[in-house]
Design a protein around this nucleic acid. Sequence first.
DNA 1: TCTTTTCACTTGCAATTAACAAGTGATCTG
DNA 2: CAGATCACTTGTTAATTGCAAGTGAAAAGA
Lengths: 143, 143
Amino acid sequence: MHRSHPRTKFRSGCPLNASVEILGDRWSLLIIRDMMLRGLRSYTQFLDSYEHIATNILAHRLKKLEAYGIIATHQDPLDGRKLIYTLTQKGMDLAPILTEMVLWAAAHEDTQNPELIRQIKKDKQKFIAAVRQKWVENSSHTD
Amino acid sequence: MHRSHPRTKFRSGCPLNASVEILGDRWSLLIIRDMMLRGLRSYTQFLDSYEHIATNILAHRLKKLEAYGIIATHQDPLDGRKLIYTLTQKGMDLAPILTEMVLWAAAHEDTQNPELIRQIKKDKQKFIAAVRQKWVENSSHTD
DNA sequence: TCTTTTCACTTGCAATTAACAAGTGATCTG
DNA sequence: CAGATCACTTGTTAATTGCAAGTGAAAAGA
């Protein structure tokens, strides 16, 4: 493991295509949401999240996200069984994408969490800054 | 066809989850990019695009995007064989998401199209406004 | 007019990926 | 030291994707 980068090249050089190849599936962004907005950090926490990802898919996605440098894995110093997953800087830089995706769905689909939407609409940049600040405070970013 | 909405409900009420369920695959956003940034409007044009989508997948994606109200389909008045695919307002509202995805990949992956990236970085809002203006001018939005 | 080409697909099949259920080994807790 | 918890792995089945070929309607060319 701990490949710094996957071996396959992208289908094209288009930056949007790169994003789609890295993030374009039904689970990756939800794992990142759980880390970024809900502060989740462990395998079982992700398993127990709203949408109920299958355990083998979760394992694969965590490996992929780590391979792309979006998350980092550390051992819990207090519990030898536990692993702690954290967002890297690259992972935190996904905040604007998640934010825009929340706004789009809130505007065009029937969704919940009006408080989150209200907060983002009120001041988008402030929201992103607050999320980033929380990450700076909580993380041991040795990555 | 022409269902106004797919019958299945989302896995959760989270707005990000809705976006992921609608857009989270390896092709949808690329079709939207081709329409939004490259002005493509027909089936064969999408087939011939950079990443070479398979024809059956393209047909499925177009149906899905239409079912979600992201694109609209019209007959070409000058050619009975041709169908013209256009973005709806809901589809145009994806511009900020695409823009942020381009910026993220440009910052963290090895990508091409530096001119596009320069333009977006220079003034993001102006870029989005220009894309939207082009759509207003070119589209027959009877949707 | 009649053949060929273009257009938007569909169909069939193989390969890949996702989802579900159960199990594993290391570690911790009571 | 028994049972629970942790982060997974290992089957197996279902669904999706990708590839190649084909189809029917409409247009263009000879």
